[in-house]
Design a protein around this nucleic acid. Structure first.
Lengths: 343, 343
DNA sequence: TTGAAAGCGCTAACAG
DNA sequence: CTGTTAGCGCTTTCAA
């Protein structure tokens, strides 16, 4: 059997409480007692049973992070950042991926991990307001990513419309006028794809460039394959853009692959801007210009937001009003938009 | 306060045990009783406290997966597969990344998650046999990846030497003779880098091709940047290979990036083979030929191996002898080695 | 400063 | 088929 507090107590000839005090670095313990207990701990190889501690304290020190897809490097990189940020607050991260399916997302936010995690960081894709409103689970949650819900949860996302506008503006500054948008979605209005689409429209409108919806390609997903399909579809339809703003880097990568296959040069024939700044976008044959959300900041804000809520809830203080946190982003210019053609 | 079994029992006017029976789908409960209890559960919104259940049962249903780096898509993709495989066995995955540092790896295998996880899947990079031998933690562990230790743990890895030989053979079949190996390591003998280096040597020797160690480039890490640095170093040293076998896809991607920059054509001037078959390798300007380890099989074997050990340990059965599990791999031919120059 | 005892929520014997 | 009870290992009053 594993060694428990009681075993240590017997060995050291003290009470269970004293051992507990030593383990928890309770200040008022005589040095002599401390060393004596410590010795027993070492001899027996005692390790505290966190499960028991958690049961007693009502918290586990574990937070969950649910992202759509770990195979998407953006989320993988973000997950890494969250794990690190959580460690700073002495939290451990339990990772879930939802596959971006609404059912899975509902499951997660309904708290099927209930009573094992203290809090949840959810990056939803398909989840609807009503799903969230129906949430029965009462553990604190913060929302990540671009979907916006009118519900009392902290929400962390960069300004997608502004970011999309910056991307499009950059392309316009290059002298491009027929700027395609790859990876739109029509069904769900509040999705990030929609916001980026809006940004695309807004910037074109602001600069007086005619909006041609034939330049917009919708897609089911946002992986490399989807980008390739979207680009092929655009070209096959006879539309020839002089620039592409992709929903994200993966879509851009897929699209560029199709351009290579068809002998289109980047950026000479078509300039490309992505979104996410995943590491791989720096290492293509043509490195990718992209919108770089501050992932560290996103992770840090998410964890801090959750941690503060956990601490407050513990103290029984009033739950504070939900916040909209907006980390920054930058436009990283690389080869895929090199060389201005206008003054 | 949260609602517990007791609350439900009171509400339904039954004993705590009956409620527990219903919750756990214990078969011998009258339907009438079941519905009555179920109603109370629904009304009160009862959710079982897993922590308490775990404390009682001595297991948590959580396994940890520790990989070097989530930013490396190979590990991200693998992690996704492990999460899925674990779900099949009703296990939840707690993810750690060690940054590939020995200290972190020691920490993980020493069980700093102790008493919260039932088992551990560790993919070590720098960990030494002595570190593992000194392991005090007694929770079951399986080792992933190419490092080999003579210790009683299940170990899952593809045959790296055979895989490397297959890669080199493919290049030789193309008529290439000056095949560089990028990403070697000299310090730690049992590392995968070493095994792949050995495979490279073995295949060259087997085919009677002279081994030129000037074609071997060592590197500190195995990311895209390291690949770029290694390739630049090779070319700067005046050595001109007609093929490159990279430690992994990321190194290959970085190397190819340098080739593009220097006007070297792939595969005409230099053919390239990678290792891992990460998704991104399919979408470069030149898609990458690579060794594809069966990630699903790796994940499945890891989880099954752990699960079987957990079940046995629970039954108090004899711990079975450790096994060497060897999932398969395939050589995926793509554009980076297109066009045979020999018959 | 340390000890005794209660109890977190649950499951598993054992009775009934 | 259902109820009673003990106890998983820990923290936390409350005494001493």
């Amino acid at each position: 059997m594993r060694v428990s507090l009681k075993d240590v107590a017997e060995r050291a000839g003290v009470s269970i409480k004293t051992v507990s005090n030593v383990v928890n670095n309770y200040p008022h313990v005589t040095p002599a007692m401390r060393t004596r207990v410590q010795q027993a701990i070492d001899e027996l190889g005692y390790r505290p049973n966190l499960t028991a501690r958690h049961l007693r304290k009502g918290r586990t020190g574990i937070i969950a992070l649910a992202v759509p897809e770990l195979g998407n490097p953006y989320f993988a990189e973000l997950a890494g950042a969250v794990i690190d940020a959580a460690a700073e607050h002495d939290y451990t991260v339990l990772l879930d991926h939802t596959g971006g399916s609404r059912e899975q997302e509902i499951l997660v936010c309904q708290g099927f991990r209930s009573r094992v995690i203290d809090g949840l960081i959810l990056s939803p894709l398909e989840l609807e307001t009503e799903d969230l409103a129906a949430r029965a689970d009462d553990i604190p949650m913060v929302l990540l990513g671009e979907r916006r819900y009118d519900l009392p949860y902290d929400h962390i996302a960069i300004d997608n419309i502004a970011a999309a506008r910056a991307a499009v503006r950059h392309l316009l500054d290059l002298g491009r006028r027929r700027i395609a948008f790859l990876g739109a979605r029509q069904d769900r209005v509040h999705q990030p794809a929609h916001l980026r689409h809006l940004g695309w429209q807004a910037e074109l409108a602001a600069q007086g460039v005619p909006i041609d919806e034939a330049l917009v390609v919708h897609s089911r997903g946002w992986g490399r394959e989807d980008g390739a399909v979207a680009m092929a579809q655009l070209l096959d339809s006879g539309v020839v853009p002089d620039a592409v703003f992709a929903y994200n880097d993966l879509v851009a990568v897929g699209a560029m692959r199709v351009m290579y296959e068809r002998g289109l040069r980047v950026p000479e024939d078509i300039a490309v801007v992505g979104f996410d700044d995943v590491t791989e976008s720096r290492f293509g044959a043509v490195s990718l210009t992209t919108i770089a959300p501050d992932k560290q900041a996103i992770a840090r804000l998410a964890v801090e937001s959750l941690a503060s809520r956990l601490d407050r809830d513990q103290d029984g203080a009033v739950t504070r009003t939900p916040r909209e946190l907006q980390p920054g982003f930058t436009l990283v210019e690389r080869e895929s938009t090199l060389g201005r053609t206008t003054v």
